[in-house]
Amino acid sequence: MGWPIIVVPFLNANGMALFPFILVKEKSMKRDVALINHEKIHLLQQAELLVLPFYILYLLNYMINLIKYKRHYQAYLNIAFEREAYANETNMGYLNKRKYYNWLRYFN
């Protein structure tokens, strides 16, 4: 699927999925296939949860992780949605074979 990619120079991350858009910090990042694949995985996660529940679960998972790990970056890296996306961002065939709700496998 051709998700619109928008350059947002003031973005605090290299990329972000904000359904139905992929936001990137710099124009050159539009060609970063791993980054774009990572964000596409998030878009599918958002779609299967009907968007709003995704953000609620994402935030809840982050807050629990923050209590557990005591550090922002560790808490972020251990969000189930991020774990799935990072684990599969370089697998360009992943989106074609991904099972629905596969992010559930990444809760720790």
Rank of each mutant, 00 (worst) to 15 (best):
I56H: 02
A87V: 00
G93E: 15
I67R: 13
I79T: 14
N37P: 00
R31K: 09
I41G: 03
A75F: 03
Y76N: 09
D32W: 01
L43T: 07
Y69A: 08
I79E: 12
E89G: 01
L77F: 04
W103D: 13
L59I: 03
M1W: 08
L57H: 08
K70Y: 00
Y101G: 00
Q74C: 01
A13V: 05
S28Q: 11
Y94H: 07
G2D: 15
F10Q: 10
Y86M: 10
W103E: 13
N61G: 07
V51K: 01
A80M: 08
H72R: 03
G15R: 09
N14V: 01
P53G: 11
A34R: 12
Y55Q: 03
V33F: 04
K68N: 07
P9C: 08
N102I: 04
I22Q: 11
K25V: 02
I67Q: 10
N102L: 08
M16G: 04
K70N: 11
E84R: 02
A47G: 05
F10R: 11
K27A: 12
M29G: 06
A34S: 15
E82K: 07
I56Q: 02
K27Q: 10
I64G: 00
I41P: 06
N37L: 02
L49N: 11
Y73F: 13
H42E: 11
I64F: 10
L50A: 05
F81P: 14
I56G: 08
E84F: 01
A80G: 01
E84M: 10
L52H: 02
L95W: 00
L35E: 11
W3F: 12
Y94G: 10
I5H: 06
L11W: 01
Y86C: 04
N65E: 04
H38S: 06
I67H: 07
Y76H: 13
K40Q: 10
L43F: 06
I79N: 14
L44C: 04
Y86W: 07
A87Y: 04
D32N: 14
A85Y: 00
I41R: 01
I41Q: 09
D32V: 01
L18W: 13
M92E: 14
K97M: 04
R98W: 05
E82L: 08
N14G: 09
N65L: 11
E26Y: 08
A85F: 03
L57F: 10
L104S: 03
L60W: 13
E82F: 09
A80S: 14
A47K: 15
N108S: 12
A75E: 13
W103F: 15
F107T: 10
R83I: 08
Y76T: 09
I6M: 12
L23C: 08
V33E: 15
W103N: 07
K99Q: 12
L57W: 06
H72E: 06
N61C: 09
K70C: 01
S28L: 02
N108F: 10
R83N: 03
M29P: 00
W3Y: 15
A34D: 15
A85R: 00
K97L: 00
Y100Q: 05
F10W: 06
Y100F: 09
F21D: 10
L35A: 07
L60E: 13
Q45Y: 04
F107I: 14
L104A: 09
N88E: 06
V51E: 03
P9D: 07
F107L: 14
I56M: 08
V33R: 13
N12D: 12
